[in-house]
């Protein structure tokens, strides 16, 4: 019995962690390329979930259409936020950009409240399969968990191929290392940053739909805590590193669920952040973060 509950916790942790990982990818890619913390990223998730909710609920369209619609809206939203709020501040002090991002976060929450109200909506899961029953029905793996983890793996593979193999992906890596040098190669830095926001926001839409499929209470603040956790995951794994965001996200999810199950439900989040602090004391660049020393 203990073993089954352990497995069940582990699977829930990996599933929650997969959502964190997908969100963390958006944080880490934007940080890597624009050297800014986009604190509005969590709220893009919430908008994505609302769009999916509206498309299925009010328009009565199938779930997959709602996901595509949500990705499209979030992509445009992300690019618009970057263009209007962050791009004019590209050479401003990083504190100004940070405050703008926090402001943008509250702006999105308030807009959502204006449109959809403050009361939670009940989000219908976009996944409708049979849960997987193992060990004679003792261990139940929900269909949401399976789809979430698989989605996370597919995204990871696609993103890795994109950044390693495609011209645009390589250009993104070049810009994240040295904007000036990238420009000297003929790379349009603004366009590259815009594409990064587009990808991050499309992933946020997917994360929002998956998150609300598992935790169905959707309200304007739905994105903020997962956003903070995913940001933590990105730092945990080493901000700027794509595999780091993945690893950090999944570890964070597992630690959170284990902490809540075995130590204390109330202290679950505190345990997560305590571990982050300890890790950063030991390895300030995060698990997979690299510090490259320049040769002279």
């Amino acid at each position: 019995m203990i073993r089954v509950s352990f497995l069940s916790n582990l699977i829930n942790g990996i599933s929650l962690g997969s959502v964190y990982a997908i969100i963390a990818l958006g944080y880490t890619m934007v940080y890597g390329i624009a050297k800014m913390l986009n604190f509005a990223h969590g709220d893009v998730i919430m908008i994505g979930a609302y769009i999916s909710f509206c498309v299925t609920q009010y328009l009565g369209l199938p779930a997959w259409v709602s996901i595509l619609a949500s990705m499209l809206v979030c992509t445009l939203l992300g690019m618009t936020i970057e263009r209007l709020a962050y791009k004019p501040l590209r050479s401003a002090p990083s504190l100004a950009v940070l405050i703008t991002a926090i402001g943008m976060s509250y702006f999105l929450q308030n807009v959502a409240q204006l449109i959809w109200g403050a009361n939670p909506k009940s989000f219908n899961s976009v996944v409708a399969m049979e849960p997987l029953r193992l060990f004679g029905g003792q261990l139940i793996i929900t269909d949401e968990a399976i789809v979430t983890v698989l989605t996370c793996v597919v995204i990871m593979i696609c993103l890795t191929l994109f950044t390693e193999k495609t011209k645009m992906g390589k250009a993104m890596r070049a810009v994240s290392e040295d904007k000036g040098a990238a420009q000297l190669m003929g790379i349009n830095v603004n366009m590259t940053i815009s594409v990064t926001f587009a990808i991050g926001s499309a992933l946020a839409a997917i994360a929002g739909v998956l998150l609300c499929s598992t935790y169905p209470a959707l309200m304007p603040t739905t994105g903020s805590m997962p956003g903070i956790k995913a940001f933590t995951a990105a730092v945990f794994g080493g901000i700027g590193s794509i595999p780091g965001a993945m690893l950090g996200g999944i570890l964070l999810g597992v630690i959170e669920i284990f902490g809540k199950s075995y130590i204390s439900t109330e202290l679950g989040d505190a345990i997560v952040f305590a571990i982050l602090i300890i890790l950063l004391l030991v390895k300030p660049t995060g698990l997979l973060g690299k510090k490259v020393n320049e040769k002279v």
Binding site: R173, A174, D178, G180, A181, M185
Partner: peptide
């Protein structure tokens, strides 16, 4: 450029590919 400014985390071949962007 001054100080070379090659892309340190990219391979030699990838650096050259960027040169031909």
């Amino acid at each position: 450029p001054e100080g070379r400014r090659v892309f340190l985390q990219m391979s030699v071949k990838e650096n050259l590919e960027m040169g031909g962007f």
